[in-house]
Design a protein around this nucleic acid. Structure first.
Lengths: 192, 192
DNA sequence: AAATGACCAAGTGGTTAAAATAGTCATTAA
DNA sequence: TTAATGACTATTTTAACCACTTGGTCATTT
């Protein structure tokens, strides 16, 4: 049709701006300007800046889920599923412009809204892992355990290995991390 | 003797002040006042504020080590040693006034000197765990593995379980955490 | 009915002066 | 002679101020 999709323009402009400058440093005026739209128009679609932000984060979360949804269905062993999913989901922290900016803003400015949103994303990851773990338990591949707590531990382990360990020693390769996951969480350190 | 031990007075005053107000909010004037000592006297013992702080942290680290040194010698299984040591060492974060204040200051102000000092303390913990792990490997109790990396993972796991999990769900009991350590890292999740 | 930008109250940022602070050093006390 | 000191200084930090920006509204225009 001839009419322009103002909502899409706004969302696109906001996504770009949030990705480039972060949440706090992005202004509504800026978004309106980039979107070629009056400022008031934005408020006909969204109650406020935060709501617009949350819509964009919803898309990000959807995008993340879409990237791993097939893993759930594939015929893989528990640890392969978990390993692949975690890598794909955590890869956003290094590859996805918006996610990179959000992590940076949380660390450097501690913007509450951003903190909250990152927590939401982590909760999504935990939720997703939970499903994998539950299936693993049902199939008898792994011992019965609290799926949510286990998901939480797995996420923490991967974050530590991928993003924290290199502050002490030289970074680990992807394969090494997968092996460590198998050693530590799957087979355990015990010799008996 | 009749002469007063000015150095001790300074260290005591500084320890109290750092414990109460943190590193940044403690002033040299304040320390001198509490210690009943001229400000210049402090600089006859220490090059600057940071050096005085580091001396006090050295004492803290010594205190922490002293609290767990016997564990190394006791006739315990690997996981008992590791579990007890980690608990005792991490307990300082909730029980030791100075440590509490430092953790708080790192989170709220991000004072670089404090960050550095907390990193030193964590390195000490990792070093200590490393010894326990190496002994465990030598005795054949656990599989061969990178002791430092394993220590790092164990520390991260305990911190996550003790201090982070309760932001999602209800806090875990000490016993639960020990059991989780055995389940996750020692025996592993695998069913075969 | 949808879109808009001038408008407003609240908050941020830049500026400068005043206060506080870490560290020095000439003087004093032992 | 040596140890201790606090007035002093250079550098930060804080406070107060105002101009500017910002998120959000709403009467007007399209």
């Amino acid at each position: 049709m001839a009419t322009i999709d103002r909502k899409k323009q706004i969302v696109d402009a906001a996504t770009n701006s949030f990705s480039l400058f972060g949440y706090k440093a992005t202004t509504i005026d800026q978004i309106a300007k980039i979107a070629n739209v009056g400022k008031g128009t934005i408020y006909t679609f969204y109650k406020n800046k935060e709501e617009l932000f949350h819509e964009i984060i919803s898309s990000l979360i959807k995008e993340m889920k879409d990237g791993v949804e097939d893993i759930l269905e594939e015929d893989l062993l528990f640890y392969e599923k978990a390993d692949r999913a975690l890598f794909k989901l955590l890869e956003f922290r290094t590859d996805h412009q918006l996610m990179i900016k959000l992590i940076q803003e949380e660390k450097e400015l501690g913007t509450p809204t951003v903190k909250e949103v990152i927590q939401n994303i982590e909760n999504m990851i935990i939720d997703y892992l939970k499903t994998i773990i539950q299936k693993g338990i049902e199939k008898g591949e792994i011992k019965p355990c609290n799926p949510e707590l286990t998901a939480f531990v797995m996420l923490k382990l991967y974050i530590a290995l991928i993003f924290d360990w290199d502050q002490l020693r030289k970074p680990l390769e992807k394969d090494e991390i997968s092996d460590l996951f198998k050693l530590y969480l799957l087979n355990g350190l015990s010799n008996r």
